[in-house]
Each structure stands twice: as structure tokens, then as C-alpha cells.
Amino acid sequence: MAGGTASLYARGRETQRGATRDPAWTRRLLIGLGLTFFALFLLAPLALVFTEALRKGWSAYFSALAEPDALSAVRLTLLAAAIAVPVNLVFGIAASWLIAKHRFRGRTLLTTLIDLPFSVSPVIAGLVYVLVFSAQGWLGPWLLDNGYKVIFAVPGIVLATVFVTFPFIARELIPLMESQGTEEEEAAVVLGASGWTTFLKVTLPNVKWGLLYGVILCNARAMGEFGAVSVVSGHIRGLTNTMPLHVEILYNEYQFSAAFAVASLLALLALVTLALKTFVEWRVASARSEGA
């Protein structure tokens, strides 16, 4: 995911002068190759999702979505995201304020540790909570004795979702806040502003688009996470099934149209995410060129 952040600050270069211009045949060849690859690997799967979803017509599509299990999967997905995103928001803001605006020992180490979940397989992200909370795990027996179920239940799903989305907002905010330095905050403090006022009135307005961008990415991943959630969920229909898990179940039961119908909702979510992301990038770029 880390690479996805870069283009937030990028602006297209419009100049193409003589010495740097490639011959026409090279251009055509490269554009042809690039677009073919793009069509085969990105467009085709996307198009296929919607085609398959609607293969049996709109009524079949909507009845697949209106199915109680599908609805409960949607609800659980929304719930998991509704918890994971705010948790990430708190962490992301705290971590970026700490790392971008202060200098202290261990700062680099902390930055690396925050990135850790990106390099951990989602399957392992699920596994670690099984090791801690399952009936054979560290806290599981004690929790079960007291009537709390984490693994094969909703809390496990939420925890796994938080794990895989952990760095998203911090990763967006840290470089942005760092690039803005601390002078404006110092100016606010000298003028008598309190800590919260400084953050709310000076820092936050400057990073709001980056923050929104992080929230969008975090939300997309929270709603779409499969591997980690799959490990901790136990696939109990109507209870611990999120939308991606429901897609899997339907697919394995050869209910292809229904599977793609639910998948199309997730694909739509992805498209909305990309559209919002493009919008935010555009806002940041125009804010930049104004500021420059």
C-alpha cells in the first residue's frame, strides 16, 4: 500500500521538448504495451465482475443482495469498518503528531514499527489473534470462562481488521505533516494558543485532505479485508461473515451470480474509493500550486 501514497503529491508534467521526445514508433509501442497490460490485468477483471453479477438480470441481482445472509454480511462489514476506522484515526493522528512534529530518540524505530503490519501476511495477522484469544491461546481460556468470545466472533473480526489497516492513516499524515514543518504551530503557540487549539485550528486544516485520503484508503481496506478476517471468523453464516467472506462462500457453493453480485458491491466501493482518491489528489495539487 505504501507505494499508493506517492502520487498524492505528484503533478503531471506538461512539457515535452524536442530533445526529450521519443520517436513516434517508440511512443506507440510503449503506449500499446502499457494499455494492453492495463486492459488485461485491470480492466478485464473489473468488467467481468459486473458482467457476471448481471448475467441473470437485475431481479436476480437484487434478490441475491437482499438475501438475509448477504444483508447480515453487509452489516458486519460496516460495523467492522465503523470501529476500525475511528481506532485508526486516533492512532494515526497521535502517531503523526508525535513523529512529524517532534524529534526524540527512537523516532526512526517507531516509524518502522508502525509500517510493520504492511509487511505481515494477512493470514498471520489473523493467526496472531488466534494465538492470543482462542480457547488454546493466552487470554482465551480466561475470557471464555468469563463469557467473552473473541475468536470466531465479531471482536476477533474487528481486531484483525484493525491490525491490517493499522498504518494507513499515519502513513498518509506523517510525510504531509513533516513537509509542513513546525513554524506555523510555533507561531500559534507564541500567540497564546493552547495545544488543542493549535492542532484544531492550525495543523488540522493544513492536513485535512491527507487525512481524508488516509480515511478513504483505510476504509476500503477495512471493508475488503479477506485473509486476516477469514482466519478469525469461523465462517458462521449470518453471524461472523463479512462481505468478502460471503463472496467466498457463495463462490465455493457454485452460486456464481450471487457471489459476483455481492462482489460487485465491493467493486463499486473500490471505484468510489479511487474516485475520491483522485479528487483528493486534485485538491492537494491545487492547494499546492496556490501555496507555491
Partner: peptide
């Protein structure tokens, strides 16, 4: 970055599809 062609902005936006598309959806689509 270097060329101008129709649909360039769309390509640029959709490059991130694998990040945004849930992996299970990508899996069954592929």
C-alpha cells in the same frame, strides 16, 4: 508521466485498483 493520450487520467486513477479492490473479489474475477 511522459505521454499524452486519451484515457491517460483514467489509467492513472485505476492503477491503484489492486489496492482498493478486495482481494477476494480480485480472486474470483481472475
Amino acid at each position: 508521466t511522459r505521454y499524452r493520450f486519451p484515457g491517460r487520467k483514467l489509467v492513472d486513477a485505476l492503477i491503484d485498483l489492486p489496492f482498493a479492490l478486495p482481494t477476494a473479489v480480485a480472486g474470483i474475477a481472475l
